[in-house]
Amino acid sequence: MFFSIVIPTLNEVDGILPVLMHLQGLRDQVEIIVVDGGSEDDTVSRASNWVDKVLISGKGRAVQMNAGAQTASGNVLIFLHADTFLPDDALSLIRQSINEEYFWGRFDIDLIGDHFMLRIISFLMNWRSRLSGIATGDQVIFVARESFFQVGMFPEIALMEDIALSKTLNKIGKPANLVGKVSSSARRWEQFGLLKVILLMWSLRLRYFFGENPVVLAEMYRTGRFWKH
């Protein structure tokens, strides 16, 4: 089993190098692909020496991740955010989980930060995902290559592409919920405040459920507002 890790980036110069350095011990088992959406900083040059491919695509995580997947050679695709670290045994955990019953899945998440509430938020995120079968991008979605293309890849929408993909994949198989934890930055939580982000994310998911335009939702997510500016 060979893996391709696809990392969408946009102005990640401050954080991309530690993530890529953390992956170097896996290079004999993985192909690392960074797909940049038009960074205005040195993200691309900083990443280029640490990966197998750097691609430039249109902006948007779904667009970028699809572009990376289309050039990937691995039979398992791992979609990793640029501020998230895989556990050391990530590949063995995925290898053990993918079989005739499970062809996709996600990890539990541990939000990185000092506030004690982040542990509780992480716990609730993991259990919500386990009960609903819906994975978020920061939980690191992995999927068999054939199945990913079978369902039509990520829908190229401005936000909620992870939710949409999960719902599509759930129609043909339930996810493997790995208790191994990825570590992800809590920068958005710290930027806007924990309670505000909790309420904002619930608001965005509810609006998405009722058919709100993902472009509008993406602007609200980016600015931390509960309404379009």
Score class of each variant (00 low, 15 high):
193 G>E: 08
183 S>R: 15
174 K>L: 15
158 A>Q: 10
172 I>H: 11
168 T>E: 11
181 K>R: 14
184 S>T: 14
197 V>P: 01
213 N>T: 00
168 T>D: 05
178 L>K: 00
219 E>T: 08
199 L>Y: 10
207 R>H: 08
210 F>V: 04
174 K>I: 10
178 L>N: 01
154 F>T: 03
185 S>V: 10
202 W>S: 10
168 T>N: 07
159 L>D: 01
214 P>D: 03
214 P>M: 06
158 A>N: 08
188 R>L: 15
208 Y>E: 02
170 N>A: 10
160 M>W: 08
187 R>S: 13
212 E>Q: 09
197 V>G: 04
172 I>R: 14
164 A>R: 09
152 G>T: 03
205 R>Q: 13
212 E>G: 02
197 V>H: 04
162 D>C: 04
151 V>N: 08
153 M>R: 15
172 I>N: 13
199 L>M: 14
205 R>V: 00
209 F>E: 11
204 L>E: 02
209 F>W: 12
213 N>R: 12
167 K>Y: 09
164 A>F: 09
182 V>E: 02
156 E>T: 06
204 L>A: 04
189 W>T: 03
156 E>N: 05
164 A>Q: 11
154 F>N: 08
156 E>G: 01
200 L>N: 07
171 K>L: 15
157 I>G: 03
190 E>Y: 12
219 E>C: 00
169 L>P: 01
181 K>P: 01
174 K>V: 12
151 V>D: 05
188 R>M: 13
189 W>C: 04
155 P>Y: 04
191 Q>R: 15
204 L>S: 02
189 W>N: 06
160 M>Y: 04
180 G>N: 03
191 Q>M: 15
201 M>K: 12
179 V>M: 14
199 L>E: 12
156 E>I: 04
189 W>I: 07
153 M>C: 15
217 L>C: 04
175 P>A: 09
184 S>G: 13
205 R>K: 13
218 A>G: 01
210 F>A: 03
202 W>F: 12
196 K>P: 00
191 Q>V: 02
210 F>P: 01
173 G>A: 05
205 R>S: 10
183 S>M: 09
200 L>Q: 13
198 I>M: 15
159 L>S: 03
220 M>K: 15
158 A>V: 07
151 V>Y: 06
155 P>H: 07
209 F>G: 00
196 K>F: 00
194 L>G: 00
202 W>M: 09
215 V>L: 07
218 A>R: 12
171 K>M: 11
207 R>K: 14
173 G>C: 07
187 R>L: 07
